[in-house]
């Protein structure tokens, strides 16, 4: 559906599903983010291990967190759009 003519009313019915998905994705990301902080505080030496073509875990994990956020965002949008379209189709 064209976003120009999609109103908040149309997406309202999918809101609950989207909110639940958002919370799940939030905690999934939080898990990885918290693990990063915990490694830093409790097992700092682990960050020094080379894990990818001579690059250490700290850099790979940091870049991974950035990339993971982008990918998770794209997946979230895909699923939310699908919910919205499904519900709108059902209503038609």
């Amino acid at each position: 559906m064209d976003s120009k003519i999609l109103s908040d009313q149309d997406t309202e019915h999918a809101s609950e599903k989207k909110a639940k998905l958002g919370i799940k994705f939030f905690f999934l990301y939080l898990l990885f983010y918290a693990a990063f902080v915990i490694i830093g505080v409790l097992n700092y030496e682990l960050f020094a291990i080379e894990v990818f073509r001579g690059v250490n875990l700290a850099v790979v994990y940091g870049m991974g967190l950035i990339l993971f956020a982008v990918l998770l965002g794209i997946l979230y949008n895909y699923l939310c759009t699908r919910y919205e379209n499904q519900i709108n189709k059902t209503e038609e």
Binding site: D8, T11, S15, K18, A19, G22, I23, F25, F26, Y29, L30, Y33, F36, A58, V59, G62, L65, I66, A69, L72, G73, Y76
Partner: peptide
Amino acid sequence: GYDGFLYAIGFLAGWIVALFLIAEPFKK
């Protein structure tokens, strides 16, 4: 060095809160 990159990681992670928890309901 890497300590500066920590800010980049944290600043971006903040958008996860914005996207998954805030964006849509806040707009409404």
